[in-house]
């Protein structure tokens, strides 16, 4: 049908240093923040920050592969909507995110188990 769109779908590898600046660039060029998530794969964290566009439905994922203790600067100063996502990554995975605008300090979900998705989990099993 005429109204189906064919959007871009990209995964772009970036480094810790240019996460904030790249996010800012995307927001300024009309993208909006969609989601952020983490995965713990092969003893490394894989963070994905997704940005999409309301008008043409493009999806751009910033992929960050880091060691478990690497410090990541929060993007909340340029993307306020990322607050919950970053708190979630910090609480459930133990990703070391600093300078979150509204830091719940691991009290977002208030779970008993520490970082259930993070490195410790695999060692237990």
């Amino acid at each position: 049908m005429a109204n189906t769109v064919n959007p871009k779908y990209e995964i772009e590898e970036i480094t810790v240093d240019n996460l904030v600046s790249r996010s800012e660039e995307l927001i300024k060029s009309g993208y909006r923040f969609s989601q952020a998530n983490a995965a713990y794969v092969d003893e490394k964290f894989e963070l994905s920050y997704s940005f999409s566009n309301y008008d043409n439905y493009d999806l751009l994922n910033l992929r960050l592969v880091i060691d478990t203790d690497t410090e990541v600067k929060s993007i909340t100063e340029v993307v306020p909507a990322a607050v919950f996502y970053e708190n979630e990554m910090h609480e459930l995975f133990g990703v070391n995110i600093v300078d979150i605008a509204l830091d719940y300090k691991d009290r977002l979900y208030r779970i008993k188990k520490e970082c259930p998705f993070g490195p410790d989990k695999k060692e237990e099993e």
């Binding site: 049908m1 005429a2 109204n3 189906t4 769109v5 959007p7 909006r32 923040f33 969609s34 309301y54 008008d55 439905y57 993307v79 306020p80 909507a81």
Partner: peptide, 30 residues
């Protein structure tokens, strides 16, 4: 700026509906 989605966004004049991506059989529906 806040990344709202769905009816929230559409009620503020943002024409964005993921069904336009044409998953399931939405590509054949008008």
């Amino acid at each position: 700026a806040l990344g709202a989605v769905g009816p929230m966004a559409r009620a503020s004049g943002v024409s964005n509906d993921m069904r336009s991506l044409g998953y399931a059989a939405y590509d054949e529906i008008d």
